[in-house]
Amino acid sequence: MRIIKLSNQIKKRFIFLIIIFFCFSFSIFLISYSLKDQIAYFVSPEDIRKMNNIDDRYLKVGGLVKEGSLKFDDNQWNFEITDESKYVIKVVYTKSLPSLIEENKGIIVEGRMGKDNLFIAEIVLAKHDENYMPQSAIDKLKEEGVWRGN
């Protein structure tokens, strides 16, 4: 085993690399910090409530489809999006929904706020969470009475 002696050359190269790395990561940090509203993909209904002038702005709203609100009539989908704050946004959508859209499940709608606080969606995406389990595991949890969900 060779004993490594840290010569001045090695120290100099190491410090050079550390400086490059930290300058670069600091600049990336500043960029992403100042752009954090743009990097965020969607806002919650609660954020929409706090916004002032949202007329005609292209918005992406994410939340849960409210239970009992998903209906199809007059050739368009009507549903409501909500979150923990219980603030509700009514949405209409004229195209076909992704197959995973269900009540009490995650959703992202993109579009503009129309009149009467009715959100006219141009794109609807399903947002699923990071929990994966088979139906049998859910049945077992339901038997034990610890299943929270629908």
Binding site: L17, I20, F21, F24, S25, I28, S32, K36, I39, A40, Y41, F42, V43, G62, I108, L125, K127, H128, D129, E130, N131, Y132
Partner: peptide, 29 residues
Amino acid sequence: SILAIIGLVNLPIVKFSVDWWTTLHQGSS
């Protein structure tokens, strides 16, 4: 190598992007 060292900055961004910002992608399982 210089490119690889600079690119290391991107690794925590890929890993923690789902925690730092709202994304369509689900979080870590």
